[in-house]
Amino acid sequence: MIFIGVALAISIGLALLISADAGTLVGLTQAQTGQLLPLLIVLIIFAGGLFTRTRRAGELLNSLLLWGAIFGVAAASYAYRDELTGFAGRIAGEFQPSVAMVDADKGIATFRRARGGHFEIAATVNGHTTPMIFDTGASAVVLTIADAEAAGIDTGRLDYRIAVSTANGTGRAARVRLDRIEVGGIARERITAFVTEPGSLETSLLGMTFLETLSRYSVTQNALELVD
């Protein structure tokens, strides 16, 4: 009980200190320190509970070292949370290159290059998840007929009169307008797109009618960056 009282007194003292000084405390801002206080209170109370029991010195020391290490890892993880988030995102990108690493504050979506050498994109077209390949050589967003139907487009009423070149050769496509397309959190509405005839295209393409609406896009050796 004594240590519980001490823990509460220390916590109240820290809170008063933070309130009196809106600057930083041991390198943390007022808000950051306030967020760490609950964890600190729990750890101090737990340590106090250890002292209220009769234990051998070695057992007590091991417990203190264990909880000290846990607190150290938790504090370090919080302090470097931005770096750890980016690191975790890069690892996830290696296993799922079509899923974007998103920086919502800056409006940036980053994709890792897939093993086949392409940038695979998990886009959302009219609410339907649509796998695409990034292609600056495509003058527009191009959908396979299967992806168009999944996105709610009535392909039976389309007029396939536009000649297009695809990996399978020359084909024909119909012009449509997408209600909404979203890539890595970057959304656009009323984007012009083409729908190809059956058998003309294996995978839909993320082309220039979407890319030209961005403020910037860039390609490095292993990464594609789209900026809203």
Rank of each mutant, 00 (worst) to 15 (best):
S63A: 14
A114Y: 11
I45R: 09
A75W: 12
R53L: 10
V26E: 09
V102P: 01
I44K: 06
V142K: 05
R81G: 00
I70Y: 12
G137N: 05
A69H: 07
A22L: 06
N62I: 14
A74Q: 01
I133R: 06
Y78A: 07
R90V: 10
A69W: 11
T144R: 09
G86F: 13
T29D: 12
G89L: 06
A74I: 15
T24E: 09
F119T: 02
F134E: 07
I91F: 11
P38A: 06
S63T: 01
I133Y: 00
E83P: 00
L143S: 08
G137K: 01
L60A: 09
D154N: 15
G27A: 05
F134S: 05
V141W: 06
G137F: 02
L36Y: 07
L43N: 05
R56S: 14
I145H: 03
L40D: 08
V125I: 11
L17K: 12
G58S: 15
G58W: 00
G107Y: 07
L39H: 02
I108S: 05
A74H: 07
G72L: 13
R53N: 00
G27Y: 03
A123N: 07
E83G: 11
G93D: 01
F46P: 00
L60G: 02
N62V: 14
R55I: 10
G107P: 10
L16P: 00
E149T: 15
L84Q: 02
N126T: 03
I145F: 02
L64Q: 03
I133S: 01
E149Y: 09
L61Y: 07
E120I: 13
Q30H: 15
F46D: 02
V99C: 01
I18R: 03
A138K: 06
L25D: 05
T130M: 05
